[in-house]
């Protein structure tokens, strides 16, 4: 199926039972969804599961899609609700081991594990362990996904002022974790990069 087909047509066809259109629709959105779920859950395996669940849920609910938002916004709402309802708790501090974090390589270098003293570890750790879920979601949607306040309110089903408040508090809280070096207090062997953070 050519990738030039506009989304609206794909959705209409998929709603009418066209399996190929449906596959194409999800093929386009899957990388975005997986990335979002990674950011939220902090775990690629969990993100893969959540993505799969979201696609299945979206498939079941496709008949209810009314073109009132973009397909991506609608899909995000389904996926984020799954994430919020997820029974599995955030892994404990200790379980965030070196083996569980993989980042894609840059340029031609292969993907690699990241080590604790790296900034990537620090950001991830703060995000998953020191930021309440409601702030985490808003921060990710705004600062990583670059969505507008209005789009975020639409996805979360909350007011614009709720988005503003949570974003402000979340951003302050996230920064406070770095500046106050709180992160370091949780792990004895953790060489915190926060000490050099002001030079960034």
């Amino acid at each position: 199926m050519p990738s030039s087909i506009p989304e609206e047509r794909l959705i209409a066809s998929a709603k009418g039972g066209d399996r190929q259109a449906l596959d194409e629709l999800f093929r386009r959105e899957r990388p975005y969804l997986f990335n979002l779920m990674c950011q939220l859950s902090g775990d690629a395996v969990r993100a893969d599961d959540l993505t799969q669940e979201a696609v299945i849920a979206a498939f079941r609910k496709l008949g209810q899609f009314r073109f009132e938002s973009s397909f991506r916004t609608w899909l995000s709402r389904i996926a984020i609700n799954l994430f919020r309802m997820e029974r599995r708790k955030t892994p404990k501090h200790e379980s965030l081991t070196l083996e569980t974090i993989w980042v894609p390589g840059e340029d031609d270098h292969p993907e690699r594990k990241i080590i604790k003293s790296e900034l990537q570890w620090c950001i991830r750790h703060n995000l998953q362990h020191h930021l309440p879920r409601k702030y985490r979601v808003v921060l990710i949607l705004r600062d990583l996904q670059n969505l507008s306040y209005r789009e975020i309110a639409g996805i979360l089903g909350c007011s614009l002022s709720r988005v503003k408040t949570d974003l402000h508090r979340g951003r302050r809280l996230f920064r406070a974790q770095f500046v106050k070096e709180k992160c370091r207090a949780f792990t004895d062997d953790y060489l915190c990069i926060c000490e050099g953070i002001v030079d960034l």
Binding site: F34, C38, A44, V103, D143, L144, R171, V198
Partner: peptide, 16 residues
């Protein structure tokens, strides 16, 4: 405040 956001934005995607 700005720096906190800039740092946060450095988060890289995970591999599948």
């Amino acid at each position: 405040f700005e720096m906190g956001i800039k740092i946060f934005k450095k988060l890289k995607p995970l591999s599948r």
